[in-house]
Computed example of a mutant assay.
Amino acid sequence: MTILVTGATGNIGRRVVDGLVGAGQRVRAMVRDPQSARLPYGVEPVRADFTRPETWPGALDVVERVYLFPFACGTGFVEQAAAAGVRRFVVHSAAAAGFAPSDDPSALARHLEDERQAHRGLELEVEATGREWTHVRPGLLAANALGWVERIRAERTVREPYGRSGYPLVHEADVAEVAVAALLTDDHLGAAYTITGPAKVTQAEQAAAIGAAIRAEVRFEELTPAQARTQWLADGYPPEVADWLIELLAAAVDGPGALPPTRTYEEITGRPPRTFARWAQDHAADFLGEAA
């Protein structure tokens, strides 16, 4: 059996590749540049792109199961995959796919509705094929903290608004582990799993955990929302992104915001989810960089 992993070099996709290789599976990785993909030994890289349908037949030849990256939505890839003989899809979706539709005009609500429509749209494409499916819906990823890498390397400082704001950030390894189980067993057919970390972890706590992982003090410097917006715009963020980010953080100061912790990972694996502290340890080298 050949399993195709799309998005194979991403934070989660690469972990899916590793998990399948560790399970002794034949893995094909769909990548744009096989030379730079740096995949494990034995993985078959294939050059293909969701924007280039002419590349899909080579990627899909003799494939029976697919780990499906969100960029497939609306491209026609799902339909062609089913026609080529794919029998099972495990969809890399998002927690927003399970949210109720909303016409709230706030920047955050508009963003979440866009997320809901995009990810649920891909799920519906897969369901419409009549093939086997599982939807894996991670919440906010701990890997978002990699956005602090440059500043932590240079200054050992995190500058953000709302230091007490936080979400139950999920380790990419937890998401990949569930995806691998759904690809390899029949235990998860027809399920939609929302996966989070074990508990809310504030931004100030995230900075402290990264500091502990790299054995250096990482200061948290709290900005006002206006200061943060100015900084993000200077960093190249579009204004609408800056607006919904501020609302996202403000919504989770006194509680878990739009996404409370779930027990999904523990219910599936029998183990508690990996903590943010564990994630920071696993990514210490990213934050050390040349400053190590």
Rank of each mutant, 00 (worst) to 15 (best):
A97C: 04
R219A: 09
V253K: 00
P138F: 07
G121R: 00
A208I: 00
A59T: 04
R52G: 07
A292P: 01
A207N: 04
I268T: 00
E221H: 09
E125I: 10
Y162P: 00
A182T: 08
T230F: 04
R229T: 11
A284D: 07
F287N: 02
R88A: 07
Y67D: 02
R137V: 09
V63I: 13
A173G: 07
A145Q: 01
V178T: 11
G163L: 05
T51N: 08
V78Q: 01
L183V: 11
A95N: 07
K200M: 07
Q35V: 15
F276M: 01
G289H: 10
D61E: 15
F99A: 13
A199E: 08
A251H: 10
F50Q: 05
A154Y: 00
Y237W: 14
M1A: 03
G76D: 04
P70M: 11
S165V: 03
A72C: 13
F89C: 08
A100I: 06
Q231I: 03
A226R: 02
A207F: 14
V62L: 12
T224Q: 02
N11C: 08
W56S: 06
T202C: 06
Q281P: 01
A280K: 13
R215Q: 13
D114R: 15
P168C: 12
G289F: 10
R137W: 14
H119T: 13
E177V: 04
L140Y: 15
A95E: 10
G130H: 12
T196V: 04
P161A: 14
G13E: 03
V136Q: 09
Y265S: 01
E205A: 15
G85E: 12
Q80T: 13
V21Y: 01
G7R: 13
I3E: 01
A212T: 08
A118K: 10
A176K: 00
A209M: 06
L169K: 02
G24F: 14
E79I: 03
A29G: 10
D114I: 15
R164A: 00
D286H: 14
Y193G: 01
